[in-house]
């Protein structure tokens, strides 16, 4: 008993996380089977999980590595096509075939992560962002012009394998892997590169390796998310994975807070549900996103607004005396 208690204290966060994770899973499943969520609500659960995977993985690149990737939809599409082509052409039992498809989609996307990560080793900032954008567009053009991907007409005949349980487990795995990575020495190395690449190198950090690892990991989970997406809609069209899709994922990351995984999860849930709830506002969706991006950036960086924010914070939360002068 004593041992168990000390275990609980030592691993407080992982324990809370596991309990919460299982509770959410049970509640959602209960809500689905009792029909409380309705068809529309239940239909949103898988997209929520997919968006969580996309946002959390992109956050690794944008929030922790500090580089802008504008081609996340490209990784997603590569994974989606690889995984869906696999389930179309192979005929194994579902419980083997689908997890395998998720892994294959992830791995193929990860290979593309290496291909994009390689130029990333030499470039940074605006140049890298534009290269990721270019890669995304190249991938889309190529998928569009190939025959075995179904071309512009899309890839049809995909089984609807995606259900809430699989999607939930995949999203949980994404979160666990990325959170653990970030809280390891490897994650600190990645964050150090974001904060100051020159002193990271001077501290003996292998910048090349960690940039690559970030891109590969992010691509893997985006690819797996793509496989879920394909098996949810039962059709893939190259047009879905355009630049706008990448931006939509970026919006989630920015709204949730760069470098804040919990924020990404909450923002992914809100951004997936909101358009369904506010159907009347669908014309204004992109406008609202764009204003949100600008306001978030200005409020986090503009000196005047930062001052205002700290004033408001100070009023809401009077000094706890925690800070040492």
């Amino acid at each position: 008993m004593e041992k168990f208690k000390s275990f609980l204290i030592r691993k407080k966060k992982p324990v809370i996380f596991s309990v919460l994770g299982i509770a959410v899973f049970i509640i959602c499943n209960a809500l689905i089977s009792s029909g409380t969520l309705g068809r529309q609500g239940a239909g949103l659960l898988v997209p929520i999980c997919i968006n969580i995977m996309l946002a959390v993985s992109l956050n690794l690149i944008v929030g922790f590595l500090g580089e802008l990737s504008l081609g996340h939809a490209g990784f997603m599409s590569v994974g989606a096509y690889a995984g869906c082509l696999f389930t179309i052409h192979f005929d194994l039992p579902v419980y083997i075939e689908f997890p395998l498809a998720l892994i294959i989609g992830g791995l193929v996307a990860a290979i593309f992560g290496v291909i994009i990560g390689l130029p990333a080793l030499r470039l940074n900032g605006d140049y890298l962002a534009i290269v990721t954008l270019a890669f995304g567009e190249i991938i889309r053009s190529i998928i569009n012009s190939l025959e075995f991907t179904g071309g512009a007409g899309g890839l049809k005949g995909i089984n609807k394998f995606s259900n809430f349980s699989v999607a939930y487990i995949a999203a949980m795995l994404t979160i666990i892997v990325i959170v653990n990575l970030v809280h390891s020495r490897h994650g600190r190395a990645i964050t150090a590169i974001r904060d100051n690449i020159i002193s990271a190198e001077a501290m003996g950090i292998n910048v090349v390796f960690y940039k690559l690892i970030s891109f590969v990991m992010a691509a893997f989970f985006a690819g797996a998310a793509g496989v879920l997406y394909g098996h949810h809609l039962a059709i893939l069209k190259p047009g879905t994975f355009d630049f706008n899709k990448s931006i939509e994922i970026l919006v989630i990351v920015v709204l949730g807070g760069m470098g804040n995984i919990t924020g990404s999860i909450i923002a992914a849930i809100i951004i997936t549900i909101l358009p369904e709830v506010l159907r009347d506002l669908s014309d204004y969706r992109m406008l609202i996103y764009s204003i949100a991006l600008i306001v978030m950036m200005l409020s986090s960086s503009s000196p005047k607004l930062a001052e205002l924010r700290s004033k408001i914070k100070g009023r809401l939360r009077p000094s706890t005396g925690k800070e040492v002068a």
Partner: peptide
């Protein structure tokens, strides 16, 4: 601000 912040803002303006 960092180049990342500026670039995201510029993308926001483009979308706006």
């Amino acid at each position: 601000a960092s180049p990342l912040t500026v670039l995201i803002t510029a993308i926001g303006v483009s979308y706006f």
